[in-house]
Each structure stands twice: as structure tokens, then as C-alpha cells.
Design a protein around this nucleic acid. Sequence first.
DNA 1: AATAAATGTTAGGTTAGACTAACAAGAGGA
DNA 2: TCCTCTTGTTAGTCTAACCTAACATTTATT
Lengths: 143, 143
Amino acid sequence: MEKLSASLEDYLEVIYNSIKYNDTVKAVDIARELNVSRASVTEALNKLSTKGLINYGRYQTITITDMGMKIAQDVVNRHSSLSSFFENILGASRQEAEENACRIEHIISAELLDRIEVYVKFAEVKSEITNEFKKFYLENLNK
Amino acid sequence: MEKLSASLEDYLEVIYNSIKYNDTVKAVDIARELNVSRASVTEALNKLSTKGLINYGRYQTITITDMGMKIAQDVVNRHSSLSSFFENILGASRQEAEENACRIEHIISAELLDRIEVYVKFAEVKSEITNEFKKFYLENLNK
DNA sequence: AATAAATGTTAGGTTAGACTAACAAGAGGA
DNA sequence: TCCTCTTGTTAGTCTAACCTAACATTTATT
């Protein structure tokens, strides 16, 4: 199975999260969330369906297949690893962290992401590092 | 001036580096470097020229304008900050670091990049952190 | 149930960025 | 100089991802 485009990963991610937290998704929700037209959502749904990642047909309820589930969870994991790295280690705001995670999650390599995940664990164990960096960062703002 | 696309930033970056290290660039070099056809290079050169970032006309030598210079240097800075973060702090190989920097440089926010740059300085001052992380990373490989 | 509002689909367009194939221009060697 | 090879350009295509406008279907309201 060839890699999904950044765009299709976004659609799948929204579908996954929406089902997880609201038990269901409608095309109009996806459109709002991704700031695209309803027509674009229909197009994306057809592509995801053709690839066997969601179950979907005209005017039908959207569900995720097992394969789609695996991919969606992988995207979501990438997202949350990056986001917590940006927020907890680099000290970015929640929003800043989220926005960057949304974009970078699609293009980072598995290996580099792995290093980032380990770094998050590392910083949990050695929490003084994070504090020292925050101090260092503030000192550097004036320069 | 509106933001350049990732693709045009790549072209400009190659032009900048090529001129910096070889005093000149030819379209065929750009094509090789970016793995695109010569036709695609011609198209990109016309766009960059229209935007006033390079001086260029049919069959003519390519040079960078002052404005193009600023943008190119900014891209190159983003690239090298990211690359050294990935290599020196996260311990990725040179190649891994470069490849990811090439992609991420186009989409990271200025604010997050700034935090990364400060983190690189921080790790230079506190070099024990990097060593501890490398140890921690190796220990975590087996889990 | 009838109608109005919301949602989903289709058809047809646009744009950026790539491609190939064919042709044009320039550069180097015999 | 002529010929050949390399390099650059053009024309025409393709694809992904978006859009709008019009139409179809479903859902909600009276």
C-alpha cells in the first residue's frame, strides 16, 4: 500500500478523531474542521473508500476499516508525539505546538520521529533539563 | 510579498548554494539536484524571475537579486538550524538530518524554529545533556 | 404530510507542479 | 567551419487538490 498524501492523511485523521469523540462523522463536520468545501470532502471520501480505508457510499454513514484504523492511529500518534515535544520540551504554546504538528506529522521520517519520542521520555525522566531550557530561552529573548 | 511555495523555495535554495560554492548555476545542475526535468527548471526560473527573486531571461545566466538573496539566506538558515538540531541534539545521521530538514524547513513556523535555534545553543553550553540523551536513546532501542 | 433547511453530490473549472517529446541554441572537438 | 553533444525551451499532458454553482437527498419543523 503506497503512502497517503498529506491531504488524505488529514481527512482520515479528522474522521478518526470525530468518530472517537462523537461516535460519528458527517461530511459537513470534516469540511468545517479542514476549512474546505463540502465538495472537496466528497471527493476525498471517495478516494479513501477506493483505497479501502473507510466504508462509504453515496449518502451513507462513514466508518473506518481495520486498515484505515491502523493508518489513522499512526497519524494521530505522530501528531501527539510532535505536539508534546514542541510544547513540553521546546516550550511552545499549545496552539503553536498543534499547528506545527499538523504540518510536520505528514513529512517527518519514522526514524527521526522515533528519536523525538525517546527524547520526550528522556525529558520526563530528567525534568530539570526542561526547566533549565525554559530559563535559558527566556534569557536569550533579549539578545 | 506573499510566501513562496515549498517547491520554489527549493529551487531558490539550490540556486543560492550553487552560486555560493561554484560561482554559477546552470539549469541542468538544478534539475539534477532536485530530481526534476530540465523543463520543470525552466518553468520555475520564469516564476522566480517574475517574482523578482532572480535575474533571468532565455538562455541567460542566472543571478540572484537582493530580495532573492534575503529569502534564500532565510531558507538556508532554516535548513541548517533544523539539520544541526536533528544531528547534534537528536543524534540522527547527517543524511537523515538533511533529508528531514529539507522537508520541514518549508513548513515550520518562525516561532518554533526560534525555539529550536535556542535549544541548539543551550545544548552547546550544556553538552552533557546530549551525551546523556545518546546513552538514553541506545538503552531504549531494545525496548 | 408538506415544506423548509441542511447536507451531500455532481459537473465543470482552476492552479501548481510535474512530465515527455520535439525543437532550438550554444559549446567543443575534429 | 561543420558536426555533434549538451543544454535550454516550448507545447501539450497529467494529476492532486481545491473551488463554485446547481441539483439531489435527507432531516427537521410546522
